[in-house]
Design a protein around this nucleic acid. Structure first.
Lengths: 354, 354
DNA sequence: CTTGGCACTCTATTACATTGAGTGCTATCC
DNA sequence: GGATAGCACTCAATGTAATAGAGTGCCAAG
């Protein structure tokens, strides 16, 4: 990118900050008065003209002020941000919320909720996939003739259950034995390992297997059948906050957005991408590549348990959001969450956005 | 209420049906042409004037047609409805959706989803409370030093789990014994019975109790602690459909509504009320008494398992909804749901992925 | 390079006239 | 006496024109 020059950068920064606050196109006079450069509106106009040529700002119509383009926001978050000092109260309320919960699922949901509460946008979180969790216990319970309730418990305290239709009736004893067998063999393995092992078992000629083994493999095989990240791995909160954002007042924009909130697939993809990136991800408007998210921005930060990244928390709000405030909030929430999950304290280095 | 006279009723009915279709105030000329009474607009005007005096219709302003009032809708659904024949396709798709699911929770969610899909409004369901379910099994698993994962399984195939913070560390053996004790004592009792028994136990002087018993009671006591109908007992679907209803285009109306969708408390109360009533409940606009629902109507029908009412399914949509179509859809869905939950037919064993 | 001046553009607002749908009232008809 | 045609009236919606104001682009002077 062409070098901008310090003055132009200062003005661009001031313009974006003003626009974020007011939501109105910023004119040369306002900008001149607000930036501390002691320039006349005419000079400012010249600079603005340059900035427009570079595609960083644009005018809605001839005789209006300028508003940032997507590119302008991008340049802003990449190079111009001055991260605001954190609101201590907000941090404390997040911290206290995360530390009072004991159920891990609740902690995760709490992080998303607190983000929505603090930013007044929507909070979202990609919860840790099961693959890395360790197998702890499985249980098969006969419900009626041909349905078996399967319960899987992992050592992170999550419980997953599913009703599995079977081709024949199984006795209680059979199921108990099968579960015992399974629990013994796979105790302590990661779910990924269990799945791999199961796939192997199922290819083996089943005649050679012990009956109990066969039952166990059949049941669990159906349970582990399809497993990938799914819908439930993304938890949203505070979606209703987005309804009174003036920038998102168009019904069809909201409709698209809420449709995406229902499916969650796009969100899942996006958060998954951001998990693989080091540090905070920011997707501005159409950058994310999903139609439904064209008119919003997403700020997301990965969080860890025991030193490895397992998921992402973030905020989804209007493109005209206060990045200087939202980014540190998301950042610190991710850290607090990591702390709450690992049971450790918050370290206090600061992280740079990508 | 004053007797209306057949002609007035016919006209009111025609007016409401027209208004439901068009969404525009209905004038005397239109109404005269549409109703098969062969009356002149002037005559119709006289009748409309009467109807207005009775509070059944109103004019948005002097020179506009008339629209039904809340009272008008009420009279309409009480006395004037001609239920439309059911859309066979819709019924079949509902039926097939309900019968392919095997997990009871999925069946319930499916009913709500199908209602939203068929009516293009939001579907909602009050799922059966736990109180009547029978206790099947409880399990205590130690997570870390002072947290115990408690899993409760009822014989309707539902699994509930909660992480319980404890005051001291419990060994695996202790917890297993406690669970065994509990399972033996309460096997087959209803959850209501279990709760009552627990309350009694906790009042007993704990010194006299066996250690194992004490552990069991402590754990389970915390689990059963707060239990009433909660948030999760109401399942919503298709909320996003309400975003493109022209009648609900006001942002603050939607905001109120989605706030209520988040809390769910009002919905829960409403559905609970409708459960205690025989037959279909219809709440038109402000009738429900909840501010958030002032601008919408709710149509709900109770459903049963094994002959007794356990919950309610319904639809929430604009007050100007096609009651003649929605009512039978809700009705038949409730019936199909009752059927799917009780008279469990043999499913064809095909398992729907994901 | 900066700045003041100036003509120009475009939106938003206001005022005013016009149109058309629909009403209420009354006199008339069967 | 109920139904109807006729008519004056009301009111939202639409269109037109004028005006004010914010802001721009450009040029010439500092």
């Amino acid at each position: 990118m062409t070098e901008l020059g310090e003055r132009a950068e200062t003005l661009l920064k001031a313009l974006i900050e003003l626009y974020i606050i007011e939501g109105q196109p910023v004119g040369s006079r306002t900008l001149a008065r607000h930036a501390d450069l002691n320039l006349s509106p005419a000079t400012v106009r010249n600079v603005m003209s340059d900035l427009e040529e570079l595609g960083l700002i644009q005018a809605p119509h001839t005789s209006a002020g300028r508003i940032p383009t997507q590119l302008g926001y991008r340049f802003f978050v990449d190079s111009l941000l001055t991260i605001k000092p954190l609101n201590v109260e907000a941090v404390e309320s997040i911290q206290s919320r995360l530390s009072t919960e004991s159920d891990p699922k609740m902690i995760l949901a709490g992080a998303s909720e607190m983000l929505s509460k603090v930013t007044h946008f929507a909070g979202l979180i990609l919860i840790p996939g099961q693959e890395n969790a360790r197998f702890r216990q499985i249980e098969f319970l006969s419900l009626s003739d041909v349905r078996v309730l399967t319960i899987l418990i992992t050592d992170d305290g999550r419980v997953q259950n599913r009703v599995i239709p079977t081709d024949r009736e199984y006795s209680e004893a059979e199921l108990t034995q099968a579960a015992n067998y399974f629990n013994e063999v796979y105790n302590g393995s990661s779910l990924a390992q269990v799945r791999r092992a199961l796939l192997g078992e199922m290819k083996t000629d089943s005649d050679k297997m012990h009956n109990i083994m066969k039952t166990a493999v059949t049941m669990a095989g159906k349970f582990f059948d399809e497993e990938e990240r799914e819908k439930d791995d993304v938890v949203l909160s505070g979606e209703e906050n987005l309804l009174n954002i003036p920038d998102l007042c168009q019904i069809d924009t909201l409709q698209k957005l809420f449709d995406a909130f229902k499916t969650k697939q796009d969100l899942l993809d996006l958060l998954d991408r951001s998990m693989r990136v080091n540090g905070i991800s920011i997707f501005i408007g159409e950058e994310s590549g999903y139609r439904a998210l064209d008119d919003v921005s997403v700020v997301a930060a990965p969080y860890e348990t025991d030193g490895s990244v397992v998921g992402t928390v973030g905020v989804i709000g209007p493109t005209r959001m206060d990045y200087e405030e939202v980014i540190p909030v998301v950042d610190v929430t991710a850290r607090l969450l990591s702390g709450a999950l690992s049971g450790r304290e918050l370290s206090d280095g600061s992280r740079k956005p990508r």
